[in-house]
Design a protein around this nucleic acid. Structure first.
Lengths: 144, 144
DNA sequence: CTAGGACTTCGAGCGCACTCCAAGTCAAGC
DNA sequence: GCTTGACTTGGAGTGCGCTCGAAGTCCTAG
């Protein structure tokens, strides 16, 4: 499979595929007589997994660590597992935060719905709101 | 409240607070006789909400639209509500995707756990894995 | 034989969201 | 009256993750 087809099938651009190879996320593929990259279909599985790591917020630096271990092959499983387990915790934390913020969003929207309907009782001149907020407790959002 | 205290209490740096003001996320506060910014505590509520928008992945561009409407005050509620409702859908989609990718991660980790324990039956020379993968169906990850 | 399109490498440029620096002002404490 | 430290402005720099452009090579079809 040449890079164009891989691009189509993976959803990445050819530029991005070469970039990933440059930085070490993708292993250097075989080249044919013309110097063109020739990919094995199995690369699609790896790209899919990379996509999942990315979608769950893993920084490229970390993917690189994982990819390097994968390249080394046997004997690196425990370390790869550890990386994924730590990442899984990050994802879980992110999920929890997202759920909480979603509920704040729900509350805020419900407040607007109440205000916008019913002829706007609480606002006549200059509502900048920060109204319908039902308490903010603590909540860190320093580190995303 | 001066900028230093606001920085401490909001978790943002003073640099970031000024930056947010420059771009329009924060309203220009009063200045005292020395030209120093003097904030009302109510700004903390707004910063907290901005933090939630950010934590849920809203781009600054979009926050700016919302902030501008908020500055305009009364009469912009419906539009603000619409922004939040659209954003809420994005957040829900993100949550769904995250949940799915989390389960893929679980499966992958379980595979490593099986491999790493039990004396490694499936790998002796050169496992790069893409093993324990139990089917990938489709899954877009082009647009994060 | 020539035009088109896909490929190659190298390096520059971009969008986002900060983050920091330099040079200056000002209030308070010793 | 002088140092310390928090503040001011404007603008430059940073890190991330791509994204694109230029110039060249190579295969294929007409």
């Amino acid at each position: 499979m040449k890079i164009g087809e891989l691009a189509r099938r993976s959803g990445l651009s050819a530029h991005t595929i070469r970039y990933y190879e440059r930085i070490g996320l993708l292993p250097p593929p075989d080249k044919n007589a013309s110097g063109h990259r020739d990919y094995d279909v199995s690369i699609l599985t790896w790209i899919d997994f990379l996509g999942r790591l990315k979608a769950t917020g893993m920084p490229v630096r970390e993917m690189l660590r994982y990819a390097a271990l994968r390249e080394q092959g046997a004997g690196t499983e425990a370390e790869r597992q550890a990386i994924l387990e730590i990442h899984r915790e990050h994802v879980r934390a992110r999920l929890a935060g997202l759920r909480e913020n979603l509920s704040v969003l729900d509350t805020k929207i419900a407040g607007y719905a109440a205000t916008v309907s019913a002829g706007d009782p609480a606002q006549s001149k200059g509502t900048k709101d920060d109204d319908h907020d039902i308490e903010h407790s603590d909540h860190r959002h320093g580190a995303l």
